[in-house]
């Protein structure tokens, strides 16, 4: 048990290292010298000083080591020009993105699970076919399309909800926070519902064919209880893994949606940093996303063994 966890944890660290090193390498690959991009009209002296300052004349691995050392100590670097600390930006923007993704994930599952369970139970019925066709269409609907539709109609035409948002932190005013969050969350949620619902449905259909479901039925357990207590849990393993891996898609979606609605989250900050060529900041953002993603999946690995006792045992034996 401990051994597998250690291995998994080491793997997690390795992934983060490789990913950050690759992004670090990429910043070095780009054409032209960053200093002339930051101060295109600076004198040669100024440029040399900045190069020195940024440590750009050291070998790549040393630069990487330095960045990593700082990162591990919680110093995420500074913006080139304004010297603004990346830490403060992260402190204000990460919670916004996390809130957005959390809501999206929560509502997607909240809607997808009952849909998946009931359509699986009534597989082949009109209800099932209708829901399935809708979800198939939703799969083809990119989240930016949903975001733009919302922005056009709910935001611009009918003016029901604010579009240019300055997200009010939840603790300050929950209601305001929600009015600003509503459209971004819907835009991010719709596509996920389709993914989760369709995967759960097909897993549930398979589970409902299992012998132990007949056993439960033959015990006289009511259908509702069979669906939720007996069939859902064994069917939810795939769903769970997918929900974890989906954090990757969710992060991508959050970047797009934040940009469409102007939500001041990490996704928006990342694109800003990219456009302004703020590489040290970008480097830290990418690392944070990688860590976030890998950690979520690590946590899910653990949850996995909670949900399925067979895995729990296989591991403790190994």
């Amino acid at each position: 048990m401990l051994r597998t966890f250690t291995l998994k944890f080491l793997r997690l660290v390795l992934v983060v290292l490789v990913v950050t090193f690759i992004t670090f390498g990429l910043t070095k690959l780009q054409p032209g010298d960053p200093v002339s991009k930051i101060i295109p009209f600076g004198t040669a002296q100024q440029k040399a000083a900045l190069t020195q300052d940024l440590g750009l004349n050291e070998p790549v691995y040393q630069q990487y080591g330095k960045w990593l050392g700082n990162f591990l100590q919680g110093d995420f670097g500074k913006y080139y020009d304004s010297k603004q600390s990346v830490n403060t930006v992260i402190k204000t923007s990460l919670p916004v993105s996390l809130e957005l993704m959390l809501y999206a994930q929560f509502f997607a599952l909240l809607i997808a699970i009952p849909l998946g369970v009931t359509t699986a139970y009534r597989a082949g019925s009109k209800y099932d076919r209708g829901a399935n066709a809708t979800m198939f269409a939703l799969l083809a609907l990119p989240n930016f399309v949903v975001a733009l539709l919302l922005a056009i109609y709910v935001g611009a035409k009918w003016q029901l909800l604010p579009t240019q948002s300055n997200v009010i932190p939840f603790p300050l005013n929950p209601l305001d926070n929600w009015t600003y969050m509503l459209m971004p969350v819907v835009a991010l949620t719709l596509g996920q519902i389709a993914v989760y619902m369709r995967l759960l449905r097909s897993d549930m259909i398979a589970t409902l064919q299992e012998d132990f479901i007949t056993t439960a039925k033959a015990k006289g357990i009511p259908t509702r209880r069979i669906l939720w207590r007996h069939a859902l849990r064994p069917s939810s393993l795939t769903l769970l893994t997918v929900a974890g891996l989906n954090v990757g898609a969710l992060i991508g979606g959050a970047i797009v949606v934040e940009n469409v609605f102007g939500v001041p989250g990490l996704g928006k900050r990342i694109t800003e940093a990219i456009l302004a060529k703020q590489y040290p900041a970008l480097q830290s953002y990418v690392a944070i996303i990688a860590i976030l993603y890998v950690t979520v999946n690590f946590a899910i690995d653990i949850l996995y063994s909670v949900l399925d006792p067979r895995i729990r045992n296989a591991r403790s034996v190994a």
């Binding site: 056993t215 033959a218 006289g220 357990i221 007996h230 064994p234």
Partner: peptide, 19 residues
Amino acid sequence: WGDQMAMVFQDPMTSLNPV
């Protein structure tokens, strides 16, 4: 079901809920 009439199935490996 279960109360008046009950059934023992062929394959005990798959007839019990694994989780």
